[in-house]
Design a protein around this nucleic acid. Structure first.
Lengths: 339, 339
DNA sequence: ATGAAAGCGCTAACAT
DNA sequence: ATGTTAGCGCTTTCAT
């Protein structure tokens, strides 16, 4: 091989040093600005960098500095629009400050989630943000992570582990929904029906519990956080001969499935069935009818994660759980009017 | 500090070697199985690994092996459901074979896209898959990437760079749509209107071109790939006093925005306006009415990327562009019936 | 079959 | 202000 023209480049700091006629330390300093140096020499080095097309090997740098300027983000499912939106906010917030956010999807699998944790730990990320897959069974993954790197749980809290958490005040969110219903719904005409997303995540469970606390005698259908379950639930409701109701669900993806199936079955929303969601995902306002739902302050949550990561890397105080207050967004599927 | 109980662990291969009373080379071999060794010794080493809670430092390994067992995936926008679905498929395919897929969102910005490329190159990913942001201006990022690592463009082709590409046969997709229209639509009653997603991406441009080739005299509205643009386009169409039509759009996100705005304005879909999308994103079948659209074989595309990456790392043959044939999915927004 | 030692690319002491 | 050198954690020759 003559001179690396193509392929995996392979031009190192040593090549740059040789080309510029300086030591490798000088090259390093010219790039980082970690020490004062003559302007002239710096220019010379920078010129060589450009000529040779040098790009620093971040692996070498990371090994030496024990720092990667990266944050790992593990999400259960890329296709859930709520998680995507959350990921986008976190990405944006850290990008602004020069930290690369690397995302791995756990594909709703505990095995892949654990592997993602191992991968990120091994790759020496400076911090880890995870939306755990499961309230109890993600414990191993979360514990492992937090024992080795600054870790924060997002949206879902794993049972029994006392670790930093940023999420939404689910109880308050449900209370907003119930207040809306008590104000605008004739429940003798459209009784409350609850459709949950399963008890395997904290947010799912908390929301479901608060609903049943308000309406202990209401019908409850419980399944997963998916469009598909929403469709099935609608089928089950109709199969029971129910003709009218106010269906409150613990996630927009469920609510959208519900609405879709109800309308396909010839029902009117909100005429026959009112439907209320939770999360305010982007498509909620595109649905027909547009979806009444609970909106979470995603951007504030991302800010909070960022602040915590910064603060913690300096001092060593524990972070309690940080809950953000959601807001009710009233749209067509359950309007602010009687009937 | 006494003995690392908490924090960034920091137990290295050397600690394991000391604990097991062997050399670090032996530990390495016990873990990798790269050389035959006595069963007894291996067990001893593995026991120490467990006792000490050792996890290999992948940064050290990568520096030495010049291989990271990771694939970089750059997507323009996490919140676009089509990209999310594509990312999920790619993730799944590579995960199965032990390669970690790390995702960075470019947040629809050329600057962030370039930074993502630099980041992945610096982190020495074994391969890079990118859905470029822009047909022409992503050239720098794609060129840089491909000069240093095996890179493949997904879904969108950057103009003028001759690099591996996996995508959909957009022309064929539009032809399917036009054939559907010619078969089932009375165009004197519902004339074709075209709503594009802008000319800055290859798929957007190709689809638009093929539409206008079929119907050179049709009205054309061009914007971006977003729900919001779909809503605006509907407003523009109605503002021109148009009462009926067959609106073909170059992406589902646009079609969903269109449908939403049309129905809000009191129009019937497909009665007044038929609407056809492209991509078949998950929510397309939840919309009201459900969306007639062109479906891409995402899983096959992911397989193709995987095969190519494997093949290329062995031989060195060039990969031509790989185009997959889409299928038409007929739903309610433009049914297979006249009127 | 096992150990000793070199070295991947980089930064940070430590010299000068 | 600049150069020399040690060493981050790991794999892989090269010895034995």
């Amino acid at each position: 091989m003559t001179s690396g023209t193509v392929g995996t480049s392979g031009v190192t700091i040593r090549n740059v040093a040789a080309h510029a006629g300086v030591s490798i330390a000088t090259v390093s300093r010219a790039l980082s600005g970690s020490r004062p140096m003559s302007h002239q020499l710096r220019e010379k080095v920078l010129a060589s960098v450009v000529v040779l097309g040098y790009h620093p090997n971040l692996v070498g740098r990371a090994l030496r500095k024990k720092k990667t300027s990266s944050l790992g983000l593990i999400i259960p499912d890329l296709e859930n629009p709520f998680f995507s939106a959350l990921a986008q906010q976190v990405s944006r917030r850290f990008s602004e400050s020069g930290t690369d956010v690397l995302i791995i999807s756990a594909d709703n699998t505990l095995e892949l989630e654990l592997r993602a944790v191992r991968s990120f730990l091994g790759r020496q990320v400076d911090g880890l943000v995870m939306i755990p897959c499961d309230e109890t069974n993600s414990g191993e993954a979360v514990q492992l992570a937090s024992a080795r790197v600054l870790t924060i749980q997002l949206d879902r809290l794993v049972h029994g582990v006392d670790l930093p958490f940023v999420g939404c005040d689910n109880t308050a969110g449900i209370d907003l929904v119930m207040h809306h219903i008590e104000t605008f719904v004739d429940e003798s005409n459209q009784p409350v029906i609850i459709v949950g997303g399963g008890g395997s995540t904290s947010s799912g469970r908390e929301r479901l519990q608060e609903f049943t606390r308000h309406r202990p005698n209401s019908l409850v259908f419980d399944g997963q956080f998916s469009f598909e379950w929403g469709k099935q639930a609608a089928g089950q409701i109709l199969a029971q001969g129910i003709k009218r109701g106010t269906i409150v669900s613990t996630a927009d993806v469920i609510a959208l499935g519900l609405t879709s199936a109800l309308i396909s079955a010839g029902k009117s929303v909100p005429g026959d069935f009112r439907v209320v969601g939770f999360d305010d995902v982007g498509v909620a306002y595109l649905a027909h009818p547009t979806l009444t739902t609970v909106s979470q302050p995603l951007s504030d949550m991302a800010d909070s994660i960022f602040s915590f990561m910064i603060a913690h890397s300096q001092s060593d105080q524990v972070q309690p759980r940080k809950l953000f207050s959601p807001e009710l967004v009233v749209r067509e599927s359950s309007p602010a009017s009687l009937k």
